[in-house]
Simulated scan of single mutants.
Amino acid sequence: MTERTDWEARAANLLKAELKRKGVTYSQLVDRLAEIGVSEKEVNIRNKLSRGKFSAAFMLACLSSIGCDTLHLDRL
């Protein structure tokens, strides 16, 4: 099994933080993604975020579906 890179961890943490900030659960995220035509299962989302392995397109779809229109990328 491969380790997460710093960039993968940062992307996963960013997405998880935005979900928490918006008060959106993984189950709710599944429903919101479905509304914009993206089919995902809760277990798949949970796995993607725990591994930090997902595409930029998936991240953008998630952020868009929860109404996140601004990101602040602070230096780590």
Rank of each mutant, 00 (worst) to 15 (best):
N47Y: 12
K16Y: 01
S39G: 04
D74V: 13
M59F: 05
A61K: 09
A11P: 00
S39C: 04
K20R: 10
R46S: 15
G67V: 03
L19T: 04
S50Q: 13
A17F: 02
T25P: 03
R51N: 09
K48T: 06
A34Q: 07
L49N: 13
S27A: 15
E42N: 09
M1V: 14
K41H: 06
K16T: 05
Q28D: 06
I45P: 02
I36Y: 11
K20D: 12
F58E: 06
L73W: 03
G23T: 01
T25E: 05
I66C: 05
D31C: 00
L73N: 01
L63Y: 07
L60Y: 10
L49D: 10
E8Y: 11
I45R: 02
S65G: 00
M59V: 08
S55Q: 09
K41V: 07
L73D: 00
N44S: 09
T2K: 04
T2R: 08
A17D: 01
R51T: 12
A9V: 12
V30P: 04
F58Y: 14
K20E: 14
F54H: 07
I66A: 03
G23Q: 01
K53S: 11
A57W: 00
E18G: 05
C68G: 03
M1F: 11
A9R: 15
L15H: 10
I36P: 12
K41E: 07
R4P: 09
R21C: 02
V43N: 14
I66M: 05
R32M: 08
V43K: 15
R4K: 15
L29F: 12
L19A: 08
E42H: 04
E35C: 05
A61G: 03
R51H: 12
S64L: 09
E8K: 13
L49V: 13
A12D: 05
E42W: 02
R75V: 10
R32Q: 07
L63D: 06
D69P: 00
H72K: 15
V43D: 15
R46Q: 15
N47H: 11
T70H: 11
R4W: 01
K22G: 02
I45H: 03
A9E: 15
L49S: 09
R51P: 00
G37W: 12
Y26T: 06
S55D: 03
R4H: 04
L71I: 14
T25L: 04
K20N: 06
V24F: 06
C62L: 06
L49I: 14
R32N: 05
D69C: 01
R21Y: 05
G67H: 03
L15I: 14
I66Q: 05
A56F: 09
V38Q: 15
S27R: 13
L15M: 10
S39E: 15
H72N: 13
R4C: 08
L14R: 08
D6C: 05
E18Q: 15
L60C: 08
T2C: 00
A17W: 01
E3N: 13
N44A: 08
S64F: 10
Y26I: 02
T2F: 02
L73Y: 02
L71H: 06
A57H: 00
A9P: 01
E40A: 14
L29C: 12
L29G: 09
F58N: 03
S50K: 14
T70E: 13
A57C: 00
L14I: 01
L19N: 11
